[in-house]
Design a protein around this nucleic acid. Structure first.
Lengths: 159, 159
DNA sequence: CAACCATGGATGATGTGTCAACTATTCCCG
DNA sequence: CGGGAATAGTTGACACATCATCCATGGTTG
């Protein structure tokens, strides 16, 4: 189900906008910031991507004109990503239809108590995943924010 | 949560076996077949992968000795995939630990009624995804088997 | 101040997924 | 039988993710 849902959302997204889910996620972060400029590593952290991934992906987005890089005055090694006009246009076109799709495919089907149950289940698993003892298996567990669970996707889309 | 869980399972899998989740999925299908040989396209259908993906992936798996290709006598254009000794060894090593991880990260945390709720929710969404009217957005909806929902992952691992 | 190490970020190689052709065989219909 | 279709599968180009490595700057300690 997971796979099917993600596949469907991806196809829908790149069918009627021409950005991917990944692009969308980046753009959401940018529009959620007052001045539409974010430090690269902060972006990586809030998306839970590794810095290499964000760097490559930003490269492609820059090439397509969705965002631009900007040097950082206060920290010589850092850099900002800023939203371009084109980027803003892209996300404004994509967001409503994406939100609609999510509602159509998920929340319309579920009663309030089911949504609540799903949220609770997701939170339990997420907490397990990001809390200490899984570090036994894998080295890197960064103890992240356990709040952006079910609602993350939908909330991002509605912003 | 979804992303985090998948990431964790992937890392665990390639940490203590040296196969990926995708390899694992293929190998499961093969071991689930009496004579351990499957037609390529049937493999694609049961994994819900497109044929191109399965073809590329099989190429890599052949190169690593996990499976082998074999011509098909009854249909000149078709071909079989067969499990090799090494492939069998790989999945036998990987399966128990994977199943254990899934239980540890998911089912141990959930009561019976939560598992039931999750299954029900997943089935609802899955049915929506694979039933007719989503074809309005995307052209290709193949009306697939709506049964392998929550249990697919766990069931495959336990086989 | 100098040596050192941690941090922010970019880069290249490689593995993986998708899309669009393309080939070869089989099926079907006249 | 001959000529399309449909089917099984491969291939190449490209987008994407991961890993290891690298570089520059910044902070820390002596």
């Amino acid at each position: 189900m997971q796979g099917e849902l993600n596949a469907h959302l991806s196809r829908q997204m790149s069918a009627d906008s021409d950005i991917s889910m990944a692009d969308f996620a980046v753009l959401v972060q940018l529009t959620d910031t007052p001045d539409e400029r974010v430090r690269v590593l902060e972006l990586a952290r809030s998306l839970n991507w590794e810095k290499s991934r964000i760097s490559h992906h930003l490269g492609r987005m820059v090439k397509r004109g969705l965002v631009a890089r900007e040097g950082c005055a206060s920290d010589g090694r850092g850099s900002y990503v800023v939203l371009t006009q084109q980027g803003r246009a892209a996300i404004e076109a994509a967001a409503p239809r994406h939100a609609e799709t999510v509602h159509h495919l998920v929340f319309d089907l579920l009663g309030d108590e089911e949504v609540a149950a799903l949220r609770s289940i997701s939170e339990k698993i997420f907490t397990r995943l990001t809390t200490g003892e899984c570090a036994a298996v894998v080295a890197r567990c960064d103890a992240d924010d356990p709040v952006e669970v079910v609602a993350q996707e939908c909330g991002g889309a509605e912003a």
